[in-house]
Simulated assay, not measured.
Amino acid sequence: MVDRTGNRTVDDAVARVIDGERLDRRDALALLAQPVEDLAPAADYVRAYYGDDTVDACSIVNAKAGNCAEDCGFCAQSVHFDTGIDNYGFLGPEEILEAAKRAERDGAQRFGIVVAEKGVSKEKRPDEWDEVIQAIRLVRDETDVEVDASLGILTEEEAEILADEGINHYNHNIETSPNYFPEVVSTHEFEDRVKTLERAKAAGMDLCAGVILGMGEAPTDRVDAALALRDIGVSSLPVNILNPVEGTPMGEDGTADISTEEIIETIAVYRLLHPEARVRLTGGREVNLDADEQHLPFEAGADGMLTGDYLTTEGQSPGDDIEVVERAGLEPNTDQNEFDPEAVKARSSDDGAAVETAAGSATSNASEPNATDD
C-alpha cells in the first residue's frame, strides 16, 4: 500500500481523490490504461484512507427461484432459457430465517433476501408480499445481521414499507452501462432499474447496486457503469464476473470475456471512482480467478465480498473466504455481527460442514450446474 507509485497519471488521480475531488470519465479511462502494478497499490491506499482494514461479508438466500419473465442474457432463472435449474415458489419465512442464521454463524454482516422476478408486487401478489414482510421481521428480530433485500422493481409505497420494516440496503444491480444494457436485457430498460434505486433511496434505504463484468462489454462500458452508479449514489458496489450458464445466450462460449488483469484493473478504478463505498467482489470470482489469485482484488481496493452460496450454484466455504481476506493482509469485519473467524475456518475444514454454506438455496444443498448473480 503506497501513496506514490512513480506513475504520474495514477499518483495525480490518487492525490485528487484524497483532496475530495471526483474523477471524471476521461480520468477513469486513462487509469484503465495504466499498468496494474501501479493501479493496484494506489487503489489500496485510497481504500485504507477512506475506510479501514476490514472486508465486509454479506450473504444471500434465493427465496424464489426460476420462472422469471425477464430475459437477462446471463441469468439461469429466466423462463426464456432452458438451464435445468430447480424452480420453486417463495420459501416460508422460517426457512429464510434458518438461512439467515447460517449466514450469521458463518460471519456475514448482512443478509439479503433475493427473489428472481421483475418485482414482488404488493398489489398483484399480496400473500407473497406478506410472507416477505414476515421473513424480514424474523431475520431482523432473531439475528444480529443487517437485513437487505433484492425484490426487483419497487413502487414508492413498497419502498417506504421496506424502509419502515428495517431493510438496510436495497439491491438492484444495473448490470452494465446504459449503452450496453440493451445487449443484455430486452424486456425492461436501464431506466427502470434506476427508478427503483431512486425510490429505495428516497424511502431511506442505502443502495447496493453493481455490475457483471465479462459479458462482452467494452472497457468504456465498465467505466460508464461505475459513473452511473456514482450518480445514483450507492454505498455498496457488488462486482460480479460472468459465470456462463449453459442454455443462456451468454453461456455459449463457456468463459467470461475478461482477463484476470482486467478484473483487478477494473476493481482498482472502481475504488478510485467510489472512494467511500464498499467495493464488493461477488459472483463468479471462484470460476474466473484461480485459488492463488482471489486475494489480488482485495489488494487493489476491494473491501467487501459475498460469502456462501450464490443464487443457483455453490460458493466456496466461508472459511476459505476468510483465508482469502487474511492473505490480502486484511481481516473480516465484525461490526454488526461479532463472530470468531477461527471457529468458522475450523468448521469449514470439516468435510460435512462445507455443504451447509450460508446462502443460495435455503435448503443448503444447491447443486445446480451453472449460475451467476443478478
Rank of each mutant, 00 (worst) to 15 (best):
I258L: 04
A63I: 06
I232S: 05
T334S: 09
V355I: 12
E262K: 02
T220G: 03
H295D: 11
A163I: 00
A63N: 02
C72K: 08
V114R: 02
P341A: 14
A40K: 00
L151A: 03
L39I: 02
E191V: 12
S59K: 09
I133F: 04
A135S: 14
G301K: 02
T372A: 13
R110T: 15
E146I: 02
A28E: 10
T357I: 06
P126S: 15
E262W: 02
R25K: 10
V147H: 02
A108F: 11
N87M: 09
R137G: 05
E326Q: 15
V55D: 04
E21F: 07
G210A: 07
G73E: 01
S364V: 15
R16N: 11
A159V: 03
A277C: 11
F298C: 01
L31I: 03
E338V: 07
A159E: 05
G319E: 06
A163G: 05
D38V: 07
D340F: 08
N365S: 13
G73A: 15
C72N: 05
R280S: 09
E276I: 00
A69D: 09
F298T: 00
N337K: 09
V79R: 15
R347C: 04
L138T: 04
I167F: 05
M305D: 04
K195C: 02
A99V: 08
V287G: 03
K124E: 14
E175S: 10
F81G: 12
L330I: 04
G152Y: 01
D44Q: 11
E21D: 12
G119W: 15
C68S: 10
L229E: 01
A203E: 11
A256G: 04
R47L: 09
K64P: 00
G216N: 11
E94I: 13
I264T: 03
G119C: 12
K124W: 08
A76N: 10
K124G: 06
Q316A: 09
H295T: 06
G214W: 05
E276H: 02
G92Q: 13
L237S: 00
S236Y: 04
N337R: 13
D141W: 06
D130Y: 10
I264F: 05
E262F: 01
R230A: 03
E331K: 13
I258D: 04
E191G: 10
A135W: 03
A99W: 06
R285F: 02
S78H: 08
D351R: 15
R140V: 08
S121G: 04
H169C: 06
E265N: 04
R110Q: 15
A354E: 14
S361L: 12
P249Q: 09
S367W: 12
T363A: 13
G119K: 14
V2T: 14
G304K: 04
E183V: 01
D321A: 01
A40D: 01
D24K: 01
A40Y: 00
S259A: 06
L237N: 00
D373I: 12
S236L: 00
M250K: 12
L39E: 00
D290E: 13
V344K: 11
V61P: 03
A135C: 07
A209S: 15
G166M: 04
A76I: 07
E158R: 15
A100S: 14
S367C: 10
D11F: 11
I113P: 07
T334P: 05
R25W: 03
T255Y: 15
E175A: 11
G301P: 04
R271K: 12
D24P: 01
H172T: 12
S235L: 03
A256P: 05
L39S: 00
A15E: 14
